[in-house]
Structures are given as C-alpha cells and as structure tokens.
Amino acid sequence: MAGSEKAPITLSVEQAHVVYRPDLDRTSSLRDFVLGRRGPRASEIHAVNGVSLEMRAGDLLGVIGSNGSGKSSLMRAIAGLIPLESGRIRARSIPTLLGVGAVLQPRLSGRRNIMIGGLALGLSKATVDEKFDEIVDFAGLREFIDLPMRAYSSGMRARLLFSISTVVQPDLLLVDEALAVGDASFKQRSQNRLQDMAGHAGTVIMVSHRLRIIRETCSRVIWLDKGTIRMDGDPDMVVTDYEHFAESQDDPRTHP
C-alpha cells in the first residue's frame, strides 16, 4: 500500500507560499472603490510558508497540525483553487479536493448537483447517469435526493460531495476533514474507499484532527505548524510527537 521507491511521482510541491491579502481582495461596491476605501491596510496572512513535498502513486499521506497551521490553504493550493505567492506545484492530474463546507448549488436539488458536480469534474453525462445510484446510496441520501441542498445538513452535503468526487477513482485526492461527518458506517465506508484508492495506485492526502484514523490509515504523516513542515515521516512517530506537543500546550483541540 505504501508507494515503492519506484512508483511514479504524482505530486511535487516546491517551496510553496500562500499569502492572503484580505483588504485588497474585497472591494465589493463601486462606491467604495471610487472613494478609495480599500479596507484596513497592512493585513497580510502568510498561510503557507515554504512547503516542499513529493508524493508517489500509492501514498496515503496524513496532514496534522493545530488550527491555523495552513493545512486547508495548502490543500486548496494543491487543488489549484488558490494561487501561490511563489513556488510551484506540479501534479499528474488536477487533484480533487473534498473540503469542509463546500456546498455545490444550495437552491438546486441533490440530483441536479450530482449532475453539475460530476460534469464539472470532467465526467461524461453517461458516466454520471450510470453511477447515479451508486453515488446516492454511498452517501445514504436516497430519500432526500430531490430536495434542494440547502435543506441538507452540513453532514449530508459533505457525504454527497465525497460520494460524487470519489465514485470514479480520482488519481489524486485531497480530503480535508471530510471523514469527520456521517455515522459510523459512513465513516467506515469512506475510510475503506480511501484505502482502496491508495491501493489502486491513487494518491491520497488526508487532513484530519482525528489522530487515531491518521495513525491507522496513513503510510506517512506531515505535521504542519505555522505554514511550515515541522515533522515528516512515520505516522506513529509524528503523531506521538504532535500529541506530546499538544498536551504540553494544553490544546483541547486534539482528539485521541
């Protein structure tokens, strides 16, 4: 299950930096823009600070770290959703990101969202139609599928998104806390699916606070702290060190 030395490189992150500049990004009214009001100055957030990483087919990487350590920003940058300040990210194919709170189109039904999401991911209409039942049943949403998505709980939305994105095994999957939703049976199903993917020479990166799952599922773990990689290696080693660090900080945010 772990990628062999000879397995092809599927992801190469080279000195990636992500910087947010909230004041420049939001001039949502013409009036503010014309009057020169651009919001409070000098707020720059250096979310990802020089991260380098290489992954091969079959790797299942865990990413852990406290809130604000840059995990989500790194994932979004790898998925190509936000630009880099500097550095480069190269991948075998466009990675699929499963993020928290990513709702597709709230006004539309789950059914139509499956169609739109599937097509936007590049699947053919035939594939989406063919896999429709599989998607709905994996997410456990059979009775709700024709209701608008804004009627779904956040857990339901996350399950549907996971289901759509993984029904056709993507080569590169980034999972941001998406396993934290659903009942025990869904959690087991999704964990199995991820391990399955890695077993079929896919590459998976998992961001989670659930250290037990990380320990169990991943072949390698990275500890991200304030935008840089603090530790990188064997899951047991890294998770243990992180737990010690967190305890010493009285960090209530870790779940054993």
Binding site: I9, S12, R88, I89, R90, R92
Partner: peptide
C-alpha cells in the same frame, strides 16, 4: 531520489 522520466508528465497546477 532522482527524477523519474515520469516527471515530465506533471502538469503545473499553480
């Protein structure tokens, strides 16, 4: 580790 020949198949996501 050295770069594979597969390296040239990587697309620039950033």
């Amino acid at each position: 580790e050295g770069t594979n020949a597969a390296d040239s198949w990587l697309i620039d996501v950033s």
